[in-house]
């Protein structure tokens, strides 16, 4: 058996998503963003949505998402992605519109835009990367930072008396009548990735069926910001992050 015998379509178990551009990503090795990007790119392609997808990029680590996935994009101001998505979705209802936001963008500066877009039940998918830290600006505290967790702006470890409590924003969003589906996923193991892909697909189907707002939170690692190796970060996430942000569906309304 030689190489040519092995490279056959029937032997193919994984390939580079067709919608990935040739750009080299700026993400740190071990970061969760890459896997989530892959799921987004695969699903848009598999679901035949390339021609009618508009993604809204955030400010934060995913600011350059538009360089990596070959669909139309709009880069929003910090936190405003859900407002931008609202207009695009309403003005072009046949579009599939999603936002891709981090925890600072979505739950701090863009908290109002997120809650109100979800409360209006905009037919969009909000993809939410929660790594409990501001990655791009160098590891500062986020609303989702765990108590005791050290960041550049709480080097003593987050204290509730000084910094308040970690914000479980997805739980809040699940309370709103405008959301049809709120789920918390992770991509730290192959099994988790497969489950997450199904969840994201369901969210996209909701948007296409105009069921309201779907929120897919990815509890994620930031090994650079957390100052760990990728493997350590995955373990730390499973041990600490999942305690505060348990995986699974928070809401799944079928109507």
């Amino acid at each position: 058996m030689n190489t040519q015998d092995i490279i056959k379509p029937e032997n193919l178990v994984a390939s580079r998503p067709r919608l990935f551009t040739d750009a080299i990503t700026h993400y740190c090795p071990g970061c969760s963003h890459g896997v989530v990007h892959r799921l987004v790119a695969e699903l848009i392609d598999e679901m035949g949505l390339t021609d009618r997808t508009v993604g809204i990029a955030p400010v934060g680590c995913a600011v350059f998402a538009y360089n990596y996935i070959d669909v139309d994009w709009v880069e929003a101001a910090h936190g405003r992605a859900p407002a931008v998505a609202t207009a695009i979705s309403r003005l072009n209802p046949e579009n599939f519109v999603f936002t891709y936001q981090g925890d600072g963008d979505l739950s701090a500066i863009g908290c109002a835009e997120t809650i109100h877009a979800a409360n209006r039940g905009e037919n969009i998918v909000i993809i939410f990367i929660n790594n409990a830290i501001y990655g791009m600006t160098g590891g500062q505290m986020a609303p989702t930072t765990l108590l005791g967790m050290k960041t550049a702006t709480c080097p003593y470890g987050r204290r509730e008396d000084l910094n308040g409590y970690p914000l479980p924003i997805s739980n809040l969003l699940a309370q709103l009548d405008g959301t049809c589906y709120v789920t918390r996923q992770a991509v730290h193991t192959p099994a988790a990735v497969r489950t997450a892909k199904k969840a994201l697909k369901h969210a996209i189907e909701n948007a296409l069926a105009k069921r309201g707002t779907s929120v897919v939170e990815f509890v994620s690692t930031c090994n650079s910001g957390w100052k760990m190796t990728p493997a350590q970060a995955n373990d730390w996430m499973a041990e600490h992050m999942f305690a505060k942000y348990p995986l699974g569906d928070l809401k799944n309304r079928q109507d």
Binding site: I56, A77, R80, A83, V84, T86, A87, I88, A112, E113
Partner: peptide
Amino acid sequence: MVVLQAESEVAAINMVYGGAAAGKAV
């Protein structure tokens, strides 16, 4: 024509940004 009362002026102008990005008269 779409008419929407936004949650704030900040949201409203960013909706305008989104609509304009889609080539619409907003």
